[in-house]
């Protein structure tokens, strides 16, 4: 909810939501750069709110579709070792997936440059690694997108070095491992081209799952939760 919208013209988030709500929508899907926005606006409207990403906080539908994809691949996630690799600090996908994967019984490890692993993340129950040495232990490798602007702010010395240390490539990806990524991929940075195109990659399956899972979310908030009310019998005039 930003480009070309009234938020861009200086309208407050509250006024935007009040204005949209005046149209009596059943649901509002909101994506903002600010943590907690979805919960905040839920207090200003009767519409169901779907969080499509709030800042670096959470991206719940991504986590749902990732769980869906993994269950299709592995059958069961319980006990699976899942490594989330890359810029965890700035990733809402990472935060939602740590919660979702753990809820499904998986063991989550986060791995990335020490500057991009948030202090205190172990309180979420995950392990922390700063190198890929133990990556062969993983059943699933979930690579995060490395954004170029992180280099400008000196979070990492260079993308080249990042790739040499953290890139998932043909040498590092084992045949039995599943490779995931939220997209869009920076080929040659967090993933080498050959692994993106490998059979281990579930990246396109994630995209497909995105459609059905988000359809299900919308069905749930639009119809599912309100279903109990039976439709009135048509009255003949």
């Amino acid at each position: 909810m930003s480009s070309g919208s009234s938020v861009e013209k200086g309208e407050s988030l509250k006024d935007t939501v009040l204005t949209l709500s005046a149209h009596r929508p059943d649901a509002i899907v909101i994506r903002t750069p600010w943590a907690g926005s979805a919960e905040l606006v839920a207090g200003w409207t009767d519409a169901a709110i779907v969080n499509a990403g709030d800042g670096k906080h959470e991206h719940p539908t991504q986590a749902l579709l990732d769980v869906y994809t993994l269950r299709q691949r592995l059958g069961d996630i319980n006990g699976a070792k899942i490594w989330i690799v890359g810029d965890v600090l700035h990733s809402r996908v990472a935060r939602s997936n740590i919660l979702a994967f753990q809820k499904m019984g998986a063991l989550v490890t986060v791995c990335g440059p020490p500057t991009l692993i948030p202090r205190g993340i172990e309180a979420m129950g995950c392990d922390i690694r700063y190198s890929l040495t133990d990556l062969p232990d993983a059943d699933v490798i979930y690579a995060l997108r490395m954004q170029h602007e992180r280099m400008d702010q000196a979070w990492i010395p260079s993308l080249r070095e990042y790739a040499s240390v953290y890139q998932i490539n043909g040498r590092r990806l084992l045949p039995r491992q599943v490779l995931m990524h939220p997209g869009p991929v920076n080929r040659g940075v967090e993933l080498s081209g050959e692994v993106v195109d490998s059979p281990q990659a579930a990246i396109l399956a994630q995209v497909q799952a995105g459609v059905v899972v988000r359809m299900a979310v919308l069905y749930e908030v639009l119809a599912g939760a309100r279903a109990p009310q039976p439709a009135p019998e048509p009255q003949l005039a």
């Binding site: 800042g55 906080h57 809402r92 935060r95 948030p118």
Partner: peptide, 8 residues
């Protein structure tokens, strides 16, 4: 721990 959880 809480800033890590909230992504703030």
């Amino acid at each position: 721990a809480i800033s890590a959880l909230l992504g703030i």
